[in-house]
Simulated scan of single mutants.
Amino acid sequence: MEPSTWRTYLVTQASRSGDRDTVAVVRAALAGGVDAVQLREKGTDARHRYRLGRELRELTADADVPLIVNDRVDIAAAIDADGVHLGQSDLPIDVARDQLGSEAIIGCSTSTTAEAKRAVAEGADYLGVGAVYATDSKDVPEEESGIGPERIRAIASAVDLPIVGIGGIGEGNAAAVIQAGATGVAVISAITAAADPAAATRRLGEVVADAR
């Protein structure tokens, strides 16, 4: 499944999943029709992420849904993930491409038009743009937090790559992100903390589809 078709993109984080484990959350999200899954799990060691990644690789492969690994090119290679998502301080895109191969899906986090243009020039396959709304799921510099749909619109006008909006997005504000030019939305708590993650995934996908 190509990034241009993604509507809902789950970013995993056990600390945001209540009393459910990540495997259970991903299984439910897949049942709800999620289009991509990113193995994140900040605050855990590489061995834990590797073991978890192997389990998620089986689930996502069976569902024909791409599995992306946050930051760690080595873990992506070790679990045969479909790709990696890189931040501004991670390995360069071309290095990740050399390690993972030409078919790997490589995303890049951006919050400015300049960063987006650089990611395009370096060969990214999609952009994660945010934090669109204020979020406490990660430490984000003030100038990169709450950039709003307007920044999505500016970046979408400047580059020709699929854009996934991220940061504080849920059912209530996802439509504005899509209408500004994003292809889909990436979420953590909107799915992981939902009473029914499968239903939450389904509803979010419907919101995005309607906004498109």
Rank of each mutant, 00 (worst) to 15 (best):
V140P: 11
Q179W: 07
S145I: 09
T201L: 10
V129K: 14
A154F: 06
A182K: 04
A121D: 15
A182W: 04
S109P: 10
A180E: 08
D136A: 04
R118L: 15
G184Y: 02
G167V: 06
C108N: 11
D196A: 08
E206A: 14
A116C: 10
G205S: 13
A199H: 07
I169G: 02
P141E: 08
A121P: 14
D160Q: 10
Q179N: 09
T112I: 11
G146K: 04
A193W: 04
D139H: 07
L161K: 02
E150G: 06
S145Y: 02
I178C: 10
G146D: 12
S157M: 00
R118A: 15
S137V: 06
G168F: 01
G165V: 05
G146L: 01
V129M: 13
I178W: 12
A116M: 13
G130Y: 06
Y126A: 04
I191N: 05
S111K: 03
A154Y: 01
P197N: 08
R151L: 12
T192W: 02
G146S: 04
D160R: 05
D125P: 11
T110C: 13
E144Y: 12
A186S: 14
G168N: 00
E144S: 06
A114I: 08
A195F: 00
S137K: 06
V140G: 06
G148A: 10
T113V: 15
A154R: 07
I163E: 00
A200F: 02
T201S: 07
A174L: 12
T183C: 03
A134V: 10
I169D: 05
A176D: 15
I147C: 04
V185R: 01
G146Q: 06
A198R: 02
I178E: 09
S189K: 08
V185Y: 00
E142L: 12
T183K: 04
L204T: 13
G170Y: 04
L204E: 09
L204I: 10
R153L: 08
S157T: 02
A121S: 15
S109L: 03
R202T: 11
T201V: 10
T112Q: 07
I152M: 14
I152E: 14
A175I: 04
A200R: 00
A131N: 09
T192G: 01
A156S: 14
A158Y: 03
A195T: 08
I147R: 06
A193E: 09
D125H: 12
R151D: 07
S109W: 04
Q179A: 15
Y133W: 13
L204F: 09
K117R: 15
E122W: 07
T201Y: 08
D125T: 03
G165T: 01
P141L: 08
G167R: 07
T183V: 07
D160A: 05
V140I: 15
E171V: 14
K117D: 07
A174M: 10
V185L: 00
A114M: 05
L204K: 12
I191L: 03
E142F: 10
P162S: 01
Y126V: 07
G130F: 02
Q179F: 09
A116L: 08
A193K: 02
S145G: 09
A199M: 03
P162K: 00
A174E: 15
S109Y: 07
R151E: 14
T201M: 07
